[in-house]
Design a protein around this nucleic acid. Structure first.
Lengths: 332, 332
DNA sequence: CTGTTAGCGCATTCAT
DNA sequence: ATGAATGCGCTAACAG
């Protein structure tokens, strides 16, 4: 290895070429397109790279080649655990293909979202992955105009900006409504975050039940604490409460804890259902019934779509419905 | 607003300048350094920006100005909930200052970490924030040589690569050990992840107790499920188990659930202590004793250090110990 | 206050 | 298989 003074300027491809005794472009090709360069030259260049400690400047490469090898990922807030498996898988799959993820947070605010997306476009990402549908129409137009591959996720729409991997929250709500109907519960409550997707599930739920349902709304991010509070509110609205439908497993766990603390038997006195199939839900006592969504798969597919598009391959199915699955456990 | 055909090439600063009837550089200054440009010119340029739908190419700007306005953030895995508040705050604070975060995941693997850091350096970030200390010596050397501001976090070291915001895991373990000693518990067990920092806390714990402690090791990421399993293992090792020290609140919650499921009274039959002060820990029944670490503050300080350094301001305190705090709740 | 010139580091033409 | 020239889009330096 080398032993350059720490103040030395970073080596450029120019330095590598000089050290290897070849031209700039040959060094470039040896590294990024070795197929067209002789073995011997490649070896020399490799050696020069080690000697100089060269690290390619991806900014410069991206500027010229129009491929930044970056993908923007937009979430409402990182701590929304709902999306974590998706973002984690997305990041990993992209990294495996040589892409890095730039993170943006919208705080559930359409104006911030628009702002963030603008900045992201300026970074010339090779793709943009958004959790949820992009709210602002201005941002949608701009994204479409930018010709950057876009994947909206965790929701369904007839007219995505470009591509989409998600599922129908209306249908989730409907399925839950049907399940609650089948159980014959009359005194039902909802504990729900007040974000867009939770509202849609609630709409689907109430539509299937054919009536409005008493609801405790909680701010994001939902948590065990808020679930406990929500149950308190719901019991005040309806002391005969038999079952609660929650917009997340965190809330459901809170409702469960509060119910047990109040001496209610679950599910005999109070049934509880969550959403998201969090890692803990199968292992609480009693275990939490919920709706499973394959978060990692959403991330994987989103990465696949972006990468295929970047490679110029035709994307045969730009809208993927990954569906969902009711999981019946002990709380119902 | 405009109504360009969607196939139109993206507007460049050149187009804006032409539309505004000024030179390229004036347009540039009107946008990035308005102080030195007349009101009238700025207005004209602003208008031209709207008309053309111009979005600055930050790749090009960064190449020339040597300020990419990007910061690399490295985590073992995004789903390690321990770090989420830090990363979320970091991302937010950086965004507020005009910087975006590029995410990298190491999967607790030193080779992957080295690889990821190399790629990151190639993106010319204005700063790098790492959770934990960088393991690979090669990577440390390279980072130092790169002259990029680096903040290591969530740990303490006499010789960080550059800057550091964290606390001593040895001391956390020591404090927990002292607390357990004070309680007079004899039959003690540890449920611990097998990552570097958890090991250090365990070392500190055992050192203070003056003996080895039966340990159930669990793989990352720790979870409620693994906590339940761990208690099973610990009870097999020592049926008289009185107290368990866990490396995360997720594990602690699992131990709690399993203990209650086995009919043990907590804390009378079994005391439990966690680490991290997760959002749920204060609200379980019984609530979980734990060690509080200010994750958001770590993110905020890391952002501050990077930003100050980028602005050329002297950083008076490159090593910040944010400390920790034992929180005694009902499980002890 | 505004403009001209130059070049960041690399990859895509073309040529040899 | 290798090389020379050109420019990606922007901003830092210097002029005026």
């Amino acid at each position: 290895m080398n032993n350059m003074s720490p103040a030395t300027k970073a080596a450029t491809l120019h330095d590598v070429a000089k050290a290897a005794g070849v031209s700039l472009i040959t060094a470039s090709r040896a590294l990024s397109n070795p197929g067209v360069v002789s073995e011997k030259t490649i070896a020399k260049v490799r050696e020069a790279v080690d000697a100089t400690g060269y690290i390619p400047n991806l900014l410069a490469g991206g500027l010229k080649s129009k491929r930044s090898l970056m993908v923007a990922g937009i979430v409402p807030a990182l701590a929304v655990s709902q999306f974590l498996p998706t973002v984690q898988t997305l990041t990993g799959e992209l990294a495996a293909a040589g892409y890095q993820l730039i993170l943006g947070q919208t705080n559930y605010d359409a104006d911030v979202e628009e702002q963030v997306l603008n900045t992201m476009i300026g970074r010339q990402p090779d793709g943009i992955v958004v959790t949820g549908l992009v709210q602002s129409q201005k941002a949608r137009d701009r994204l479409r105009q930018s010709r950057i591959p876009v994947v909206e996720t965790w929701d369904l729409s007839e007219r995505p900006i470009d591509m989409l991997v998600g599922f129908s929250h209306i249908k989730v709500g409907g399925a839950l409504g049907g399940y609650f109907l089948g159980k014959g519960w009359k005194h039902i409550g909802i504990a729900s975050g007040d974000d867009h997707r939770a509202r849609m599930r609630r709409d689907g739920f109430e539509t299937t039940l054919g009536r409005k349902v008493p609801t405790a709304l909680v701010p994001a991010p939902s948590s065990l604490e808020l679930g406990r509070k929500a149950l308190g509110e719901l019991l005040e609205m309806d002391p005969k409460l038999q079952a609660v439908c929650c917009s997340s497993d965190q809330l459901a766990q809170g409702v469960l804890v509060e119910a047990l603390a109040r001496g209610l038997r679950v599910p005999q006195d109070l049934a509880i259902c969550g959403f998201g199939n969090a890692d803990f839900s199968a292992h609480t006592v009693p275990s939490i019934s919920t709706v499973h969504v394959d978060g990692p798969e959403i991330g994987r597919l989103a990465a696949r779509l972006i990468i295929d598009r970047c490679r110029g391959e035709a994307v045969s199915q730009p809208i993927v419905d990954v569906g969902f699955r009711l999981i019946e456990r002990q709380t119902t």
